[in-house]
Design a protein around this nucleic acid. Sequence first.
DNA 1: CTTCCACCGGAACCGTGGGAAA
DNA 2: TTTCCCACGGTTCCGGTGGAAG
Length: 334
Amino acid sequence: MIHNEAALRPEYIPRDLYHREGQIEVLKGALTPLTAGHPPDNVTIFGPSGSGKTTIAKYVMERVEEETGGFAWGYVSCLAESSTADVYHRLLEDAGHGVPMQRQGVTIGSYLDGFRSCPEPIVVVIDEADVLPDRGLLAKLYEVSNVSWIAIAADEHGFLADLDSGVESRVRSAETITLDRYSIDELVDILQGRVDAGLASHKVKSGALEEIADRARGNARDAIAILRRAARRVQNDQASRLNRQLVVDVESDAREDVRDQQIGSLGTHMRLVFEIVREAGEISAGDLYDDYESRISDPRTGRTVRRYLEKLEDYYELIHSTGTTSGTRYELQT
DNA sequence: CTTCCACCGGAACCGTGGGAAA
DNA sequence: TTTCCCACGGTTCCGGTGGAAG
């Protein structure tokens, strides 16, 4: 059934990106100064999750890298890094600039010096920039003449509103690329591409991809997760072919896959807070804290737990809160 | 209607760990 | 070496708010 496992991974970048040709051209255009060895303009990419932001950024970077014969660039997902210093460190390391540095205790200033000392332009891709611990990072990098950034965020208005004015003007001056949710037809095309690249297509029955696309609601990441789950079932002989019913059967498992991947990166306390919400399904703020406090030997304070909840809701989108003040309740994000 | 209080979230503050300067 | 500074995760403090009880 599966003859190319890589094609089913979320980070797989197909040679041809479906339905993003326009945005790809804009991004390529913005990067053309690199062909002459000059740093390009900064770029911001906005779009809901699963709309292909990360994929087109990586895709274009790799294409431009091929065309220019190589230049320094780094990628970081701010969700995966907990501090500003971590973000700088990952970028410098990923850009392959200099020896791997000690992570601990390095000041922000010396990271910036690291960028400055690079003789050529460096492009840094800052993914999940909504979660950036310190938004000033974009302004600081803006001041480094040989560094250009591509900032990726979900919500344009929310992102800009959170910036302070000095940073905002710099971010606003960047080239903007906006992506919309994929339509059902577009998602079907994308899925078909993965099928062609990695699956025994005669086992994929008609209507199955449409079913996946329908359930994924415009989110390519979810769609591919469902496809992967379903293909595995066939691979393991738990199903004879990939049809609509199989898609229905694996959807919730696939969503668990996507969620589990995020949960893996949470710290002990935040994970416990999330587990409590997951087990309860829905829980009041007071009960949640009581439960949390009773289940761990060194509980954080209520304020800190509220910060965790804020992060789980706004950044990870794993939970959802309703009501205000005394009526506040937390539930699993659906 | 008034009072109470559970909860929210901003701001200031604190202890720790590590590099840099003296 | 000693002192100073910085980043970071966490806490303390507190004003604001709206639902529920009186």
